[in-house]
Design a binder for these strands. Structure first.
Lengths: 338, 338
DNA sequence: TCAAAAAGTGTAAGCGCTTACATTTTAAAA
DNA sequence: TTTTAAAATGTAAGCGCTTACACTTTTTGA
């Protein structure tokens, strides 16, 4: 026994009357040891309640069966869902997920990357593709397998699993336009350090441009992804001299806020103003009326990401990116303009 | 350089022209080394981009600066908030939070506990106080510092940081009763393996009993904490021969579902039926009308938990529990019955 | 100025595990 | 049987770090 009085490989070996190497092999290469010995060792392990010491293992084998993920924030249902799946999926392969948050700050992200690498993660999952060149440099220098999620872009040379934010937003805008809307406003997310938010705005803007419409202030607002900021932004939009007939929101949370603003202004949705969201989180269905929004298959994204990062970590080789399709889910917050 | 070509303490020492011990001291006991040496070492660290190897550190010092938390699920805004704070708070002390999920299954929780201990966590954070005796036995045998969150009970001999679910629910029920309601129904969470859900139901039940009312089927329903189950349950309640005038929900998510059901049934809230929630998550403010609910100071809970678990891990000694007060926040989903 | 105390460094022995290589045991072939 | 190949096990050298202890340098006080 050692200082922390947890049993060690050595204790097991002694009790089973074999060498430490044999015990180690029982654990890692079980079919290299005779059945009878294995039984004896297993009994010893059970009797002592032995668990391998993580540090020793990491030190000797130089891998940790750990994958790190750095997300902007946990206080966001969007990431929570994908992450939950990712975690479940990884744990099926005996891999632990380490989660850190960057609060949308590239510098904090870089710091967290170092922290996670310091913990010996075998792979890294990051959100979006926009970050300082040095960060990518650092990652490639270090030869860390990493994967970008929530984004799908051909601009980036790095492996990613996600959807095309631009395309999805473009589709949604086209959808709104085809329903007859011409006065279209957008409440987008803060674009600083957030490529997803920027692409969603660009997608809407491009769709409008193609239809001879222009997305510009005061019809274009950037706010944080919170209910209250969404509400405040919508309040201003609805108080304009010519208010929009439709508001496209950067995500469902903002859309919920916009809905609230409409209610408070005594307006009916969708009769007086249409509001659409993005992400299709639970909230989208909870509010009244239900939000027409872009459905993102978070579970599938999590599952694929788990599969790929494991593959990358194992083979130390790049893998092909995966694009996940989104679709518009119709509820009742959008109506036709005649 | 070693196999993984990451710089080691040794590389730093060589470059700075000092011994590994000195480098180590620069990192851990900085005021035991001379200023000029420190500068040299720091330069070497920067030049190499050195990060301590976690395994080596864990092995040599027998601590990991890691705290593990096992929550039922990440897909729940309630835990996400507290966890986010916990994580931020811990990272201020250089501690990493490892999150695992149990999906409300005690066996899975036990498994996760072992997994986290295997990773050498210095402390453990668990949700609620109800779990098999063996689990507690295991934890105490192993002398792992651990902390229960989201609960505050004198029944449990273990350190906890949270609020009194029974009392909070009792207060809410009293509040509803004082507003004149007598036909009160409750949509509670699934009680299996969930002491918080059970206490909330008991709290409501007790308050009613004290006022000569009885909480029983069909006015008492247990469902999962999801919007849809909340909606379905409320739908049945509202279709009863004598529907309740008020529905107390086990959490805001269920309440949002109930709200939805009322809308669908063409009923106005709170005019035709009052609905109250629990937890005060963002959702409570997002829905229309805003939910009258029990406000739980999640941030404060996270902060206190971080403080305590650090203290426990450091001193290897129990600390006093902390009870956090809740309060009712009035929005507009509850009205007086004349 | 010099001895004694204090401060700063270096040396080297582990921490618990894996794994290349050496050795012993068992099975197969002759 | 004996010989030889194959399988099972043991030996021991690290992996990167901390830290007790020994040693050297600097500071302090007379």
């Amino acid at each position: 026994m050692n200082t922390s009085n947890l049993p060690t490989l050595d204790d097991v070996a002694r009790l089973a009357g074999v060498s430490t190497a044999t015990v180690s092999r029982c654990l890692n290469l079980p079919d290299q040891v005779r059945h009878t010995t294995k039984t004896r060792v297993e009994a010893a392990i059970a009797e002592l309640g032995y668990t391998p010491h993580f540090g020793g293992l990491a030190l000797a084998s130089n891998r940790t069966n750990t994958v790190g993920a750095i997300i902007p924030t946990m206080e966001n249902a969007i990431f929570a869902r994908g992450l939950q799946v990712l975690q479940e999926e990884l744990s099926l392969s005996g891999i632990t997920l380490l989660v850190a948050t960057s609060l949308y700050d590239p510098e904090k992200e870089a710091k967290q990357i170092r922290a996670l690498l310091g913990r010996g993660v075998d792979g890294l999952i990051l959100i979006g593709h926009e970050r300082p060149q040095e960060t990518y440099q650092f990652l490639t220098d270090r030869r860390v397998p990493f994967l970008l999620m929530w984004t799908s872009t051909t601009d980036s040379p790095y492996c990613n699993v996600g959807f095309d934010n631009h395309q999805a937003a473009y589709d949604m805008a086209m959808h709104v336009i085809l329903r007859g809307h011409r006065q279209i406003a957008m409440i987008g997310g803060t674009t600083k350090g957030n490529d997803r938010a920027r692409e969603r705005i660009k997608g809407v803007s491009n769709a409008m441009k193609q239809n001879g419409l222009k997305l510009q202030a005061p019809y274009l607002v950037e706010t944080e992804y919170t209910i209250d900021e969404g509400r405040a932004a919508a309040q201003k939009l609805l108080a304009l001299h010519t208010p929009p007939t439709a508001i496209i929101c950067g995500n469902d949370v903002q859309a919920a806020g916009a809905l609230k603003a409409a209610h408070q202004a005594g307006l009916k949705v969708p009769d007086d103003v249409s509001i659409v969201g993005f992400d299709d989180i639970d909230l989208a269905e909870a509010v009244e009326p239900g939000l027409t929004t872009v459905h993102v298959p978070h579970r599938r994204m999590g599952r694929e990401a788990a599969r790929l990062i494991i593959q990358m970590a194992r083979n130390r080789a790049p893998v092909e990116s995966i694009r996940i399709d989104t679709n518009i889910v119709e509820r009742s917050s959008l109506r036709d303009i005649s």
